[in-house]
Amino acid sequence: MKKYLLTLPNLLFVVLLGVVIWPYSELAKIDYYTKNPSKLHEPTVFLVVLVLIHIYYLVQSRRNNKYRVANDIATVVYLLLLAWELVTMKFNIVSRIYIYFPPPENIFYVFFSDYKEILTGLVYSMRLLVIGFTLGIFLGVVLGLVVGWIPRLRKAVFPIAKAVSSVPALVYTPYVVMLMPSFIFASIFVIFLGVFWPTFMNMINRVGTIDHKIIDTAKVLNTPLHTTLFRVILPYTLPRIINNLTVMISVAIMTLTAAEMLGSNSGIGYFIRKYSVMIDYTRTIAGILFIALVVTVLNWLVDLLKKKLVRWDY
């Protein structure tokens, strides 16, 4: 028990709580531009988040094999937060820095004060993301399966696909946004392309280089073509598809947020752009942190999917 109590993260957690609760200079509360006390200055949300982080750490560190890793990660996170808190709130090093580097209390408070706008944006963005992403993965997998299976088609399509897919979707995003009748179409389209090409290429490759023993086995078992494609080759390629999902999610988020910064009026990318234009960096950073959170949750879902679907590849 003693071993658990006297850890570095526990110590840092207590110090951090103390520092946040400790009185700070009144100057820090003043908004640089308006010269009025900042409406966002409210440490409760930050304190709640800290407690949640610590509970999560405590749960993770109780798992035998995770003890050291959980300790190291928590230590790094707490040190960063502590440094951030000290530089901004406590020592208020230069008030001019303050607008560029808002204190953590303010940023976490945005999640509470602006939750409606953030959630609306999330729903808006997720709708585009899910549609574009699903279409891209689905068509990439099915077309890749068919093209990869027929050698003549594969040899014809592969070099073309390779050339086209080497251009990142991000590059032609502005053009597509301008070209398409509505922003929704445009962003779904660029997300689709961003996800489709790599998935398609990967599928062709994987199907083309499939272990011939697998195919021979399917043949001698008298497996018809459609069963071979969807019940032999598809499961064979599934681990690769799922491993790529993590990368694909990053690609999709990247193209989506880029598109939103160009021509949207809602969404998580739009949130960041809107407030950075307004020089409200507290909300800008809150938006950035929020995207990080969303990507983390999505990746965590992919991991769950992986454990469920491709148990055999571990």
């Binding site: 021979d216 001698v220 008298n222 032999v232």
Partner: peptide, 19 residues
Amino acid sequence: DGPGRERAVVFQHYSLFPW
């Protein structure tokens, strides 16, 4: 003319579907 259902095959190795 190709594999047939009256025949069954056992290969040397790795012929099971790993999934």
